[in-house]
């Protein structure tokens, strides 16, 4: 499964990069979302896959068997998801505003404002 996921992550990342390189600003935001999916999955896979074993303690369930699931990557991903959400929301608003002000979605037209 790890090998399969490795390729899934690679694919998500590639798709994200491809979208980032588009000129349309809407595609740019999709690219960022794809990238954040890829990275979340990367951290998750790196922490090790253990089927159906949530990190709960103190319920007396299978307490004699040590739980191999690593809670730390999960906590990290949780944070990452929330922050990713914040960024996406902000980016959406920015994009909305950008389109309103400039009337274009072509990122290449931003260049003019930069070099003038």
């Amino acid at each position: 499964m790890e090998t399969i996921l490795a390729f899934v992550i690679g694919l998500l990342f590639a798709a994200g990069v491809y979208m980032l390189l588009r000129r349309s600003i809407v595609k740019l935001i999709l690219g960022i979302m794809l990238l954040s999916h890829a990275i979340n999955l990367l951290i998750f896979t790196a922490g090790g896959l253990h089927k159906g074993r949530p990190q709960f303690t103190g319920y007396g369930m299978e307490s004699d068997i040590p739980n191999p699931t690593d809670p730390l990557p999960q906590a990290l991903i949780l944070t990452a998801i929330v922050i990713g959400f914040g960024i996406t929301a902000f980016f959406l608003a920015l994009m909305y505003r950008f389109y309103q002000v400039t009337g274009t979605e072509d990122l290449d037209e931003l260049k003019e404002g930069d070099t003038k």
């Binding site: 089927k51 159906g52 074993r53 949530p54 999960q74």
Partner: peptide, 10 residues
């Protein structure tokens, strides 16, 4: 996938 591998909160 997360659910399947025990990351319910995530």
């Amino acid at each position: 996938l997360f659910i399947n591998y025990g990351a319910i909160d995530v």
